[in-house]
Each structure stands twice: as structure tokens, then as C-alpha cells.
Design a protein around this nucleic acid. Structure first.
Length: 524
RNA sequence: GAGGGUGUAGCUCAGUGGUAGAGCGUCACGUUGCCAACGUGAAAGUCGAGGGUUCAAGUCCCUUCACCCUCUCCA
């Protein structure tokens, strides 16, 4: 989904340069590259996998461990969320209930001439009464489309007025080369019907017969709905509350492209927040606004991030609101690409699973209903409504890299990644200004001290090779926010320089204050 | 799926049918006094893959794979 942005957009960054840096510095590699690559799959290198882990953990911390940074929701109480971890392979009926199987099993035909695509079962053809057109063409159309009248006219001209009938394309036995596609001029432009299976198929069990067919999940959310009742029954959660689920999903995208943006294997971080129907719109607005704020907090702070509220006619019938957090990627500019969707899903999913599985999924809310003489509430049974903030972690990583990527020819090191310190895979580096006079030893001591204190957050690097400028430049490309340099004054005055990645500016801090300085910068 | 473009060292790219190249990066040694410094050297290539034409193919032909762009699709 893309929309156009303000006209004042700056020139887009070069995606080629970003991809080159991602490879060069070990953020992202093509999957199976030495075998020629595999369409729609990408691997993360040492820095990329750490960056992605930092993003995943930031989500987990701010959504599960301390939801919304400890804020209260619209009900005035702190937001409460719990995690689950559900499987990639679910019972096939899960996807039947969710609508994923039904919605994506339609064979399609394409027109080579007009590039149009039609549902095979929607296409009709005009043929002569006899059913045998001989060596003449037949005319395909789609009901209630302009093509219907146009093709009818042509068919009547070919076979005579009143001498034609229409039959479904599927029942037409003639060679494909005879068919004129609905919006085409020449025969033979229509492809044979093709199945678009957006879900990855697999088999359970070693025999792998057609009875054993299962699917790799196209989204993590359904695992949450399927376990909703178990979570309610076995933990002390009360509506309103959320269940989060992070993991890999698979979609056989028709055209994977734009680097990792549309991959066939990707990771989602999804929350389903369950609430009473009367409060659902308030919760929807709450989550929509918080998710936007969250992406801003980790570095997507500029004009490149927008919140786009869906129009009424874009909404599913059960939804009372859907928004996308969208980022202006270099390849979507001046438009935007979706990072996260926040959807009011009503009780659609629980209703579906209740229907298909036969299990009762209603929630008994003991805090609602009329007040009884004994001081208790009578209770109210209902299917909770659901607000779904569903984020793409791979798209998040890509957006972070694109936003952070900066080219400044005035710098000695023109390319750098201005990654937020919380997300940066390498948190800091320690350098001796020159590799002599005892500086390497002091640096090594500081490096060890910082590593022991900060290893949970990310790497602390030590580098004494080559010139100081080259070492700064290397850290710039890796997105390391701070470099601590041991120089001659360290040996006499017990201070080091701190070099800020984005400005290149330096300040001195005490050797024994370096850890506290870094902790403050990392928000610890 | 359709059309177009690209594929040669980690990156960016030269390479006219006749010995596989450059810049940058990487590594080693020397030097060093805050921004890809300098000197000397080294490693690094299935020329995307497979087949064909040819005495000879990175180069020409066919097939195929991947990436980029434009359509199409995107629960």
C-alpha cells in the first residue's frame, strides 16, 4: 500500500548504496548466495542479526514486559499483555476458519496483451449457438464490465446477431489460441488458468500423502486466537488484556522485490488486544497512537514516517478502523510502504474459530452485569473485540537502516548509519589513538570493563589497527554511536575523548566515568 | 506471471573472440599524536550457472538462476 507524500520530499537515498553497505558490513546477505541466491529470501549477517534482535527485544520490552512504557490505557489502568509462542504449522482448519484458504485458491488468467488479470471462474465467452466457432475467434468477457457489451457486439458481427450464446470460459473446450481476452484486440493473449497459492504447502508425516497437507502460517496472529481460551483459563488475565506473538511467517508472494521488503519468509511481531466491544474504539485509537509513537522512539523520527488511517471503503466489514504505520522507503518514495497495520478486527476471528472448531470461546466478564445483593456482579458473557497491532520486523530493520543511512560528502567518512543507540548492534568502540606508549593496554582494560557491563545490550569493539580516521570510519558504517579514544592525556589526566558518530564532535570524560556515560546514552 | 535492465575480487566498476584488471576495502610489516593519512607488501575470481559455436569465449548463440525497474498481486 502506497500513498503520495508531501511535495517537499528530499531526494531519495540510493537503494543500491544502502544494499552495498548492508552486504559490505555484514548486515544483510542474499540467502544461498553461493548457489545463485533464492528468490524472496534474505539472510542477516553478524551486524544485521544483532540489529534485528535489538528491534525484536525492544518490541518485547515495550509491548509485553512493560506495555506502553507503563502507561495507563483508556480504562485508566495499566496496560497488561502476556506472550505466547505458537507454531508455524497449525491444524489446516485454522486457515479455513481464518479465511486464508478460501480467499486464495482462485485460479487466475492473465492477458499478455493488456496485462489484465481475471479470475478464471468469472470469465465468460461468447460462442456461436452451435458451440463450434470453426476457425473463428471467440470472445471472452467479464459480466457487468464494459467488456461484456463490447465483446457481444464483436461476436454478433462474427457469427450473426442472435446466433451466439455465452458459456463459462472453464467449459469452453477449444484451444486457448482462439480466445480474444476481455480487453484485448487479438486472440491468443490469454494465459492458461493458474493457481495462486499464497500459502506454503507442506506435509506432516514421512509418508507425505495428500491427506497430510498442512500449511506454513501466513501470519502469527491466528496462533493467538486459537490459544485465546487457554490463556484466559490458565492465567489470571482479565479483559482488557493483550497477547503477543513473535515469529516467522511465510507467504508465496507473487513478486518478491524491493530488497527484504517483500520477502517470502519474514518475521512478525503481533499483538491481539482483547477488550469489551463498548471500549474497542477507544482501545483502537490508543494502540494506533502508541504504535506510531513507538516507531518514532526508536529512530524513525522524521517526515518519512506517517500514520495513515484507512478510508471507510477500505475497511473490512467487521472493522471499525484500520491504520497503517508507513515509512517512505527509497524505493517507494514519494509514496510510502507499510511497516505495521493496526486493525480493529471486531470479534471476527474468535467468531470464526468458535464456528469452525465448535469450541466455546466466550469470555465471562465478572466485572460487568447488574450488581447482585451480595455485592458481586452478575457477569457478562461475550466474545471480546480485538485490536491488532501487527508489525513486520524485517521491514522494521529495513526502515531503520534506510532512515539511518546518511551520505555526507563533507565528512572524511561520507557514509554512515545514524542508528539509535538502543538499536545499534555495536554500542561503542574503544581505540588507542596510537598503538604505543601504553595506550593499547589502557584501551584493553577499558574495553574489558565496558564489555562486562554492557554485553547484554550489544557488542563493545576494540580496534588498534591502522589510522584513527579509518577506525572511526569503520564504526560510522556499522552505526556505532560512540567511540572512546585513549590518548596521551589519558595517561596523565585519566580522561578519554568521546567521539559522537553523528556530529564527529568530541568531548572528554573521565576514564572512570565512561561506563556511566554510555549507560546514560543507552537509557539504562 | 508480462515487459525492460543488470550480473567480472568484499564494494564500485573497466575489459574490442587471443595471458583476469583498476580504485577502494581487507590483512601483514613499518610509521603514527584525532577523522577512510603515508610507505612496502600480501591474500582474494566456478567472470551468476548449464549447454553450444570456435583452434580459442568474460566477450558470440541458446537455456536457466538471481537482483533492479515498470505492470500485476499483496488476507
Amino acid at each position: 500500500m502506497t500513498t503520495s507524500g508531501p511535495a517537499s520530499s528530499p531526494a531519495p537515498k540510493s537503494m543500491d548504496a544502502i544494499m552495498a553497505l548492508c552486504k559490505r558490513r555484514g548486515f544483510i546477505y542474499q540467502a544461498s548466495e553461493i548457489y545463485g541466491g533464492i528468490n524472496g529470501f534474505w539472510d542477516y549477517g553478524p551486524l544485521g542479526s544483532q540489529l534485528k534482535k535489538n528491534l525484536r527485544e525492544a518490541w518485547w520490552q515495550d509491548m509485553i514486559l512493560r506495555p506502553c512504557w507503563g502507561r495507563s490505557g483508556p480504562n485508566g489502568a495499566p496496560v497488561r499483555c502476556v506472550p505466547v509462542e505458537t507454531r508455524i504449522v497449525q491444524h489446516p482448519k485454522v486457515w479455513e476458519a481464518s479465511g486464508h484458504i478460501a480467499g486464495f485458491n482462485d485460479p487466475m488468467v492473465d492477458c499478455r496483451e493488456t496485462k489484465g488479470r481475471y479470475r478464471y471462474d468469472h470469465v465468460m465467452v461468447y460462442v456461436p449457438e452451435s458451440g463450434d466457432p470453426g476457425d473463428k475467434p471467440v470472445f471472452a468477457y467479464v459480466g457487468d464490465q464494459p467488456s461484456e457489451a463490447r465483446q457481444k457486439k464483436k461476436a454478433e458481427k462474427t457469427f450473426g446477431a442472435g446466433a451466439i450464446k455465452s458459456v463459462p470460459l472453464a467449459s469452453f473446450p477449444q484451444p486457448w489460441g482462439r480466445i480474444i481476452a476481455p480487453d484485448a484486440e487479438k486472440p491468443g493473449s490469454l494465459t492458461e488458468p493458474r493457481q495462486f497459492n499464497l500459502m506454503f504447502k507442506t506435509y506432516i508425516g514421512a509418508l507425505a500423502t495428500e491427506d497430510d497437507v498442512a500449511y506454513l502460517r501466513p501470519e502469527t496472529a491466528q496462533g493467538i486466537f486459537v490459544q485465546f481460551k487457554n490463556v484466559v483459563d490458565t492465567t489470571r488475565v482479565k479483559v482488557p488484556f493483550g497477547i503477543g506473538n513473535v515469529g516467522t511467517s511465510f507467504r508465496n508472494e507473487v513478486t518478491p522485490r524491493n530488497f527484504t521488503f517483500r520477502s517470502r519468509e519474514f518475521e512478525q511481531a503481533e499483538l491481539e488486544f482483547f477488550c469489551h466491544p463498548d471500549e474497542s474504539v477507544a482501545w483502537y485509537k490508543f494502540w494506533r497512537d502508541f504504535r506510531m509513537e513507538w516507531w518514532k522512539s526508536i529512530g524513525l523520527a522524521g517526515d518519512n514516517l506517517i500514520l495513515r488511517e484507512h478510508e471507510k471503503d477500505e475497511l473490512s466489514h467487521y472493522s471499525q478502523g484500520t491504520s497503517d504505520v508507513e515509512y517512505r522507503f527509497p524505493f517507494t518514495a514519494p509514496g510510502f510502504g507499510e511497516l505495521e497495520g493496526i486493525a480493529h478486527r471486531g470479534n471476527y476471528d474468535l467468531t470464526q474459530h468458535q464456528k469452525v472448531s465448535g469450541a466455546k470461546l466466550e469470555y465471562n466478564d465478572t466485572e460487568r452485569g447488574e450488581l447482585l445483593p451480595n455485592g458481586q456482579r452478575r457477569g457478562e458473557r461475550y466474545l471480546p473485540h480485538c485490536i491488532e497491532p501487527a508489525a513486520g520486523l524485517d521491514r522494521g530493520v529495513l526502515a531503520l537502516i534506510c532512515e539511518a543511512y546518511t551520505k555526507d560528502e563533507s565528512r572524511p567518512s561520507p557514509e554512515l548509519l545514524k542508528l539509535h543507540p538502543r538499536l545499534a548492534p555495536i554500542k561503542a568502540a574503544v581505540f588507542p589513538l596510537v598503538a604505543k606508549d601504553g595506550m593499547p593496554e589502557v584501551a584493553e582494560t577499558l574495553h574489558t570493563e565496558l564489555t562486562e557491563r554492557f554485553w547484554r545490550q550489544g557488542a563493545i569493539e576494540m580496534d588498534e589497527k591502522q589510522s584513527i580516521g579509518k577506525r572511526y570510519a569503520r564504526m560510522d558504517e556499522a552505526g556505532t554511536p560512540f567511540c572512546f579514544t585513549i590518548d596521551g592525556d589519558t595517561l596523565t589526566g585519566q580522561t578519554v575523548t568521546v567521539r559522537d558518530r553523528d556530529s564527529g564532535q568530541q568531548q572528554r570524560v573521565g576514564l572512570d566515568k565512561v561506563g556511566d556515560f554510555l549507560a546514560a546514552k543507552l537509557g539504562l
